[in-house]
């Protein structure tokens, strides 16, 4: 197992290297650079000043020198400076990463809290009215665009009913470290998390339902019944465990999906996380930040597949990794 993980991490290195070159070149190819934004903001400044600044920052060097510098710094843990915010990118990421992580985690929990019971009910009593209702919900949640649904949720529960705040990650008036601070954070998390969760249940429900319907007909379920095992235990011990395999396999991907998916959610709910930073950095041509974020997302998706493989090897004895 350890060998397997180490090998996968070694394979990850060339993948990430390729990704880093690609995004670096793409960022370079984009019109404008880190100073374009400031130039437009201060049209009175002498273009010469910017030219000198470019020279000083090394923006006129050939791309491979710039790339080498960037990668070198990355290895030393220096993520670089944000040209727009004029702060270390590490500082910029810190809080937002935590925000995104919590939002992602809570979303994931809600997703499974909703999806697993619904999938189980739909699978066990398939063709019943409950099943039809759940499949109906699935179609709707699959068809409705995230941003439309998010705006509706925000409008009803934020603006209309005032149950939840309409932006931010925490109330500015509460003091850090207190219990009220904690509650306020959760309060800010809930609406975006529920919104995202309601739309990300499709895959899990569908998979679980189909798996259960298939597994019900398997021979080993007949064997279990032939042993005189009560129906309840036939389900809990034999059918559900086997049906949960593909869902467990998706868990790793889900983690990444939810962080990636938060880009829109964070934007709409004005939630200060990585997704929001990503969008605004692109708009402001803050490429040093964009590069780091893309690298991070890339790393996470490779990690996701690794986690999925590991989870699967743990829950399914037939899959052995070495």
């Amino acid at each position: 197992m350890l060998k397997f993980i180490i090998r996968r991490f070694l394979v990850m290195i060339p993948q990430l290297a390729l990704l880093s070159i690609l995004i670096f070149l793409l960022a370079k190819a984009m019109p404008g650079d880190a100073l374009t934004g400031s130039m437009q903001a201060n049209p009175n400044l002498d273009p010469k000043v910017f030219e000198e600044l470019r020279e000083k920052l090394g923006l006129n060097d050939p791309w491979y020198e710039q790339y080498g510098r960037w990668i070198g710094n990355l290895f030393q843990g220096e993520l670089g400076m944000s040209y727009i915010h004029k702060v270390d990118i590490a500082d910029l990421l810190g809080d937002r990463m935590a925000n995104t992580f919590w939002l992602g985690l809570v979303t994931l929990i809600f997703t499974y809290l909703i999806a697993v019971p619904l999938g189980v009910v739909a699978g066990r009593w398939n063709e019943s009215w409950a099943d039809k209702l759940i499949v109906g919900y699935n179609y709707v949640s699959f068809a409705i665009p995230l941003f439309v649904f998010a705006l509706i949720m925000l409008f009803i529960f934020g603006f209309g009913l005032h149950w939840f705040p309409i932006g931010g990650s925490v109330d500015v008036t509460v003091e850090k470290g207190t219990f009220a601070y904690f509650l306020s954070r959760i309060h800010h998390l809930l609406l975006p998390a529920i919104t995202a969760a309601l739309l990300s249940t499709v895959g899990t429900i569908q998979y679980l339902r189909n798996e259960i319907i298939d597994t019900k007909l398997k021979d080993f379920v007949k064997t279990a019944r032939a042993k005189g095992t009560p129906e309840k235990k036939v389900y809990s011990r034999h059918i559900f465990r086997n049906s949960l395999l593909p869902v467990a396999a998706f868990l790793g991907y889900d983690i990444v999906f939810i962080i990636g998916g938060s880009v829109f959610i964070e934007q709409i709910f004005s939630y200060p996380g990585l997704g929001q930073l990503f969008i605004s950095s692109i708009n402001q041509r803050d490429f040093s930040v964009v590069n780091i974020l893309v690298m991070l997302f890339g790393f996470l998706s490779i990690l996701g597949t690794l986690i999925s493989d590991i989870i699967l090897s743990i829950v399914d004895p037939r899959i052995r990794i070495d």
Binding site: K218, D219, F220, T223, H238, N242, P317, R318
Partner: peptide, 11 residues
């Protein structure tokens, strides 16, 4: 049962 592969719970 007929098929010993499918008649046993794989997990």
């Amino acid at each position: 049962f007929q098929d010993p592969l499918t008649a046993l719970n794989p997990l």
